[in-house]
Simulated assay, not measured.
Amino acid sequence: MTEFLSLADLRALARDCLMRAGAPETVARAVAAEVAAAEAAGERANGMEALLRDIRLMRYGRLKPATPAQQIRARPGFIRLDAQHGFAAAALSGAMSDLAGLGRTQGIAVLRLERSSDPGGMICAAAALGERGLAVLAFGPDGPGRIGHPDLSGPALLPTPPRAALNLLFPDIDQDQPADSPIGGLVGHVGWLVVLDAGLAGDSFANAAIWDGATAPTTAASIACSAELLEQIVSA
């Protein structure tokens, strides 16, 4: 059996389930927004399936939703964001204004997310930076990334981020990530956001070859979800 949910209903469901599992409301709202954004983009693995996984990790004690993230300004133009084993979406949500300001001041800025839940697509973070007039590249150690520009309606999927080049800047980009299983230590994923003042870049960023593999952003208004998955999430 398939249920159809509006994005608003999906966000509300995710928020309520997270809060019932022990997440503070501000954290639950940020995570629910990311879940809804992933579902709207057709990425179930970063949406409802990730929600179920992370609620279970909270129950196992492997994910700490109430611990506030910490910013560490290691050097000009670089922010280390320590989620302290909490949710990636919540940690990123609280750092976007600072990262955007740094990008505008420096022209280019980098944020490294550390010790977080699996950051997934980082769709909300990339969208927030684009809305602030910045070009952005968001990626993790594996899987697709996101690339955004103020002229786009939203962040575009980048199936193959240029990891060979990025590895020169981030030597540990290929490090193994912890398994999200019932046993083991606390969550400890990483992710990166590179932001660039789109005005300073001019047309060079918008016309770069990196866009050749990008997939235009998509948004669904209604989300189809199996009753079984919904039941698992509600009862997790």
Rank of each mutant, 00 (worst) to 15 (best):
S93K: 01
R112T: 15
R56E: 11
S153F: 05
A36T: 06
W211P: 04
L102A: 14
G120P: 14
V27G: 02
A198R: 12
D82Y: 11
W211N: 02
L13M: 05
V31N: 00
A201H: 04
M122D: 03
L186V: 11
A38Y: 03
A89T: 00
G130T: 14
L57K: 00
L10M: 07
I108S: 11
E43V: 15
I233Y: 04
A23M: 09
R59S: 06
L99Q: 09
K64S: 14
D142E: 08
T160A: 08
H85M: 13
F139C: 12
I233S: 02
V136D: 10
D16N: 08
Q175H: 12
R146I: 06
V234I: 12
F170A: 14
L111D: 03
A40M: 07
D118T: 13
P155R: 01
L5F: 10
V234Q: 15
E231N: 11
H189K: 08
V27Q: 00
A221H: 13
P144Q: 09
H149C: 07
L51P: 00
V31L: 00
I233W: 01
R115A: 08
A66H: 09
A224P: 15
G61E: 09
K64T: 07
L51S: 01
A224V: 03
V27C: 11
A127D: 15
A66N: 03
G61P: 10
L169A: 10
L166K: 07
S235M: 13
A209Q: 15
R163N: 01
A95Y: 02
M48R: 09
A66K: 04
I173Y: 07
V234C: 14
S153K: 08
C17G: 02
F139H: 02
A206Y: 00
D180K: 01
D176F: 09
F170C: 13
D212W: 01
A40G: 11
L81M: 02
L7G: 11
T26Q: 11
F170Q: 03
L13Y: 01
F205Q: 03
R75H: 04
L102K: 03
V187S: 10
L152T: 03
S117D: 06
A109Y: 06
E231V: 08
V187Y: 07
V27H: 00
